[in-house]
């Protein structure tokens, strides 16, 4: 790929990412915030493709855009957030938050620019970094972390079900107790 093309496309995607990320944290409509997040994630996937990581880019689109954002939308609906309406979702420490975020950006950007000055990214793939190599790496050098991630996902799945599940037994017992209480009051 031509260096000029790579740089031009990078700036296009960087603009998309920045604008939609600011949309995520400032939108006054919860659904708009989730859709801005979709734009940010797809922009990031395009950056991954520019950096020769096609497999991660597609995993990002499938897992993040396909699953995580849908889960977020479910969360917004189940908590009866006012969908389609505009509301105030910011707290009263906006100014302080902006100062902290600007300080974080200033310090990290300064350190990064200072330490990676003059380092150029390659404009083309110079070594074996295709999806095939990613697969080989996962199932050879990184097979133990890979299995640990499977266990983590299983634990998170079971944990989410246990936490979010309504305990029918306890609920019916409390209802029974309330009913008995009421009957006793009526007797008196």
């Amino acid at each position: 790929m031509e260096a000029a093309w790579q740089e031009g496309l990078f700036f296009v995607f960087a603009t998309v990412i920045t604008v939609s990320a600011i949309g995520v944290v400032t939108a006054r409509n919860v659904i708009h915030a989730a859709l801005f997040l979709v734009a940010t994630l797809i922009g990031a996937a395009c950056i991954y493709i520019l950096m020769f990581a096609e497999f991660v880019a597609w995993a990002q689109v499938l897992v993040y855009v396909g699953a995580i954002v849908v889960l977020m939308l479910f969360g917004l609906m189940l908590t009866r957030a006012p969908i389609g309406k505009y509301g105030e979702y910011d707290n009263d420490q906006k100014g302080l938050a902006a100062i902290v975020a600007a300080a974080v950006f200033g310090v990290t950007a300064w350190v990064l620019i200072d330490s990676f000055e003059g380092v150029e990214l390659p404009t083309d793939r110079v070594a074996a970094t295709t999806s095939k190599d990613v697969g080989e790496a996962i199932f050879s050098s990184y097979v133990l972390p890979f299995e640990l991630v499977s266990v983590l996902l299983l634990a998170a799945l079971v944990g989410a079900v246990v936490i979010a599940r309504r305990d029918e037994r306890v609920t019916s017992r409390t209802i029974d107790a309330a009913r008995r209480e009421k009957a006793r009051e009526e007797d008196v």
């Binding site: 790579q6 740089e7 920045t18 910011d90 975020a101 974080v104 990064l112």
Partner: peptide, 23 residues
């Protein structure tokens, strides 16, 4: 393309996330 462009973009995205968590 200099590597620092990408790193600064990531730092910017991270700080926007920090702002969102706090605000």
């Amino acid at each position: 393309m200099p590597l620092s462009y990408v790193l600064v973009l990531a730092a910017l995205l991270f700080s926007i996330g920090v702002y969102g968590v706090l605000a």
